[in-house]
Structure formats: structure tokens, C-alpha cells
Computed example of a mutant assay.
Amino acid sequence: MADDDAPLQLPATSWAVLGLLSFGEELSGYDLKKWADASLRYFYWSPSFSQIYAELRRLEGAGCVTSRLVEPEAGARPKRLYRITDAGLGAVRVWAREAPVDPPMLKHPPLLRLWLGHLAQPDRLRRTLEDHRADAEGLRARAAADLARAADEPGWAYPLLALKWSERYYAAQAELMEGLRVDLDAMLAARAGEDPSH
């Protein structure tokens, strides 16, 4: 285990899982997946169950988490619960405070399709933009719902700010896609010699 002067070398997924445990609750892999889906997925990603369990094994091996098997009620399977250790909390604290923050890297598949618009049909491009607008609006609505559900979570002041940002981000994505569709129609109309306002 690294000391407080040097961050432990872990992949981003490990830090995310350790971060979820840093709120102090004892959680199962299922709980961690549920929390990731209700928060991290909107601005980072949501790890799969296999990724979560692989990272939990890595973190336990590094002394960052402990686990215990809980005997189930009748008919249920045993459940393993994980808790962050003092060393794990120290490691994630150092990482959050000291590790370099990479700038966001935008990968926007609908925009790549538009960039290659000379190879596509206009109707297909419009449908791509509309599909992305609808997806963004759906994510905005889900982020708003998760924000409302998380409002009662003790200690979630900062995740609530991230969820508010996520709701605004997906609203902006929907608006940007609608603006891009208008721009596409205007460009196509101008090429065809039409008045783009009609």
C-alpha cells in the first residue's frame, strides 16, 4: 500500500469503485452497480458487473477494501459486502486531491457521421441527429429522476451537484442536436437552391 505522499497506481475504474465506497456504506457489488448507474453513468461511465467485481478483488488485494460474506435469509444466496479501509480512504483522498485531471476527450459518434455526410443520405443524417436528440432527452429525464431520488442520500452533496450538471448537459445536447438539424436543413436547401426558411 502506498503512503500518503504517492498515489496508489490504479486504473480509473478502481478509483471510481473506491470513490463509491468512500461515502462510508457497506455495499455489495449489486449496490455499487446501482449507485454507478444512478450517478457515474451520466458523466463518466457505468462499469459492468464483471468490471466492478474485478476491481473489488484488486482493491481488496491492495488493502483498500475489506469484505465479508453475509448469510442470506431463507432461499437467498449469500451476499458479499465491501467496506473501504482507512488505507483505501487515504488512497482515494490523495488521488482526488493530487492526481492530474485529464481534460475531457469528446467522442461524438453522431457528429462523426455528420462530418462524413458527403457519404450518407440526408434523411439518414436527419434520423441520426434526431435519434441522438431523443437519447439525450431521455438521459436528461433519467438524470433528473435520479437527482430527485438521491436528494435524501446523506452525504451526497457533491454527487448531487454532478447530477445537476448532468441534467443540464443532456438538455444542452438535445438543444445542440436540434440546432444542428436546422443547420443541416439550411445547408441542404441552399445547395438545392431553395429558400431555407420554407
Rank of each mutant, 00 (worst) to 15 (best):
Met1Lys: 04
Asp3Cys: 04
Asp4Asn: 02
Pro7Trp: 00
Gln9Lys: 07
Pro11Phe: 05
Ser14Tyr: 04
Ser14Phe: 04
Gly19Asp: 03
Gly19Arg: 01
Ser22Ala: 15
Glu25Val: 06
Leu27Asp: 02
Leu32Pro: 00
Lys33Gln: 12
Asp37Trp: 09
Asp37Met: 10
Ala38Cys: 04
Ser39Val: 02
Ser39Arg: 05
Leu40Cys: 14
Arg41Pro: 03
Tyr42Gln: 04
Phe43Ile: 10
Phe43Pro: 08
Tyr44Leu: 08
Ser46Trp: 02
Gln51Lys: 10
Gln51Gly: 06
Ile52Leu: 08
Ala54Met: 10
Glu55Ile: 00
Arg57Met: 08
Gly61Lys: 07
Ala62Gln: 12
Gly63Ala: 00
Cys64Tyr: 02
Cys64Lys: 03
Glu73Ala: 08
Glu73Pro: 00
Gly75Cys: 07
Arg77Pro: 03
Pro78Glu: 07
Pro78His: 06
Lys79Gly: 00
Lys79Met: 09
Lys79Ala: 05
Tyr82Leu: 01
Ile84Glu: 01
Asp86Met: 02
Gly88Ile: 01
Leu89Asn: 08
Gly90Gln: 13
Val92Asn: 02
Ala99His: 01
Asp102Phe: 07
Pro103Arg: 14
Pro103Met: 08
His118Ile: 07
Ala120Asn: 15
Arg127Gln: 15
Leu129Phe: 14
Leu129Ala: 12
Ala134Met: 12
Asp135Ile: 10
Asp135Met: 15
Asp135Cys: 13
Ala136Pro: 03
Arg140Asp: 06
Arg140Thr: 00
Ala141His: 08
Ala141Phe: 01
Arg142Gln: 15
Ala143Lys: 11
Asp146Tyr: 04
Arg149Thr: 11
Ala151Asn: 07
Gly155His: 10
Gly155Leu: 09
Ala162Glu: 14
Leu163His: 05
Trp165His: 10
Tyr169Ile: 00
Tyr170Ile: 05
Gln173Ala: 03
Ala174Met: 03
Leu176Glu: 11
Glu178Val: 01
Gly179Met: 09
Leu180Tyr: 04
Arg181Lys: 13
Asp183Met: 13
Leu184Val: 06
Asp185Leu: 12
Asp185Gln: 13
Ala186Trp: 05
Met187Gln: 15
Ala192Arg: 15
Asp195Ile: 06
Pro196Phe: 14
Pro196Gly: 12
